[in-house]
Design a protein around this nucleic acid. Sequence first.
DNA 1: CCTATTCCTTAACCTACATCAAGCTCATTT
DNA 2: AAATGAGCTTGATGTAGGTTAAGGAATAGG
Lengths: 191, 191
Amino acid sequence: MEPENKLIYYIKKWVNITEEEENTVLSAFEPTLIKKKKDLLVPGEVCKYIYFITNGCMRSYFVDAKGVEHIYQIRLDNNWITDLESFFSQRPSKYYIEALEDTRLLRLSFDGLENLYNEVPGLERYFRILFQKAYINALERLNATMWESAVERYNDLLSEHKDIFQRVPLVYIASYLGITPESLSRIRKSK
Amino acid sequence: MEPENKLIYYIKKWVNITEEEENTVLSAFEPTLIKKKKDLLVPGEVCKYIYFITNGCMRSYFVDAKGVEHIYQIRLDNNWITDLESFFSQRPSKYYIEALEDTRLLRLSFDGLENLYNEVPGLERYFRILFQKAYINALERLNATMWESAVERYNDLLSEHKDIFQRVPLVYIASYLGITPESLSRIRKSK
DNA sequence: CCTATTCCTTAACCTACATCAAGCTCATTT
DNA sequence: AAATGAGCTTGATGTAGGTTAAGGAATAGG
């Protein structure tokens, strides 16, 4: 399937839009390519775009006062990535968004999205559903982080996103799980 | 301000709706009252409504395999509460939603909301924005839980939601912060 | 007004995971 | 082919916060 059609395919999973609207949507997006280890966003910059990953892998993270990186999102193909806080407010971001592989994206600007909401009402519904699911997900992860052990969280991730382990270095997965690489290594050893 | 108008007031903070639409919205909601310590939802039940708290205080929590309660939401006046996962999927819930005070709510059924989305397009936008903000918030809380100490999380809550400390028993606040009541007590002592 | 809960605190001890430090294995660069 | 560094593991030691157990203060109910 062509990358553009993948986007439409995922939108149509949740809302109905006409063929004409499909074209309006597609023409609002701009294909982009980013090389491994390059940043889409760095702290202090305003996040100008929302990105749909058609092929590849991205992470977002912040660096704390001691200089330690903390990863809070890892996203593979057919997922959205952005700093929603900065994008939505159009104020400077606190986060990095970085490619973990050479990655192909479709990007949409803040104004572009606002226009689309008006031109294609179905898209407002699509994003309402998307954010709703993302929110449910974040709460689940929050509960797991608060109340489950590192081992349980590791097992959950393994059973739900095995693909991440094939494509992302363990240091990053450890950070995403909220533990040190050493702890992750010991967890894996004990299997 | 009348409870009904408070709801409209909060909606109009984010979207424009006509006076006629206001009435359509209001008439879709049903005022409810719930006594302290009573449940709006228990595990196994489908969450049939989304609730707007006009006056009072609610918590949502789950009980783990060992019988321990874990609170993941505490909501005061002028906030929404529901089990979004169950409400959205209309499948059985894993959570309790319980009143911490005698509480006045406006409730809206799943079908009622679906109708409103179609009759009042602005409402789709309102909920898109609401979920978007809720998602950003949940990610912030996730980061804090993973990477900040209990003391920092306590201070954050104190500076952002001091009102909670006046109205909610510390046992519940401890659980919401992801710590034991004993730890919370020690943190407070050291001030 | 007395009793029973609910709520909160304190102290002694324990444990999951972090930190620090070292070394090993590949892949990449020169 | 040697040198570099990214990615991962292992072991020794440290610590934030949990667990267990007890008691006191405040509130509610009979």
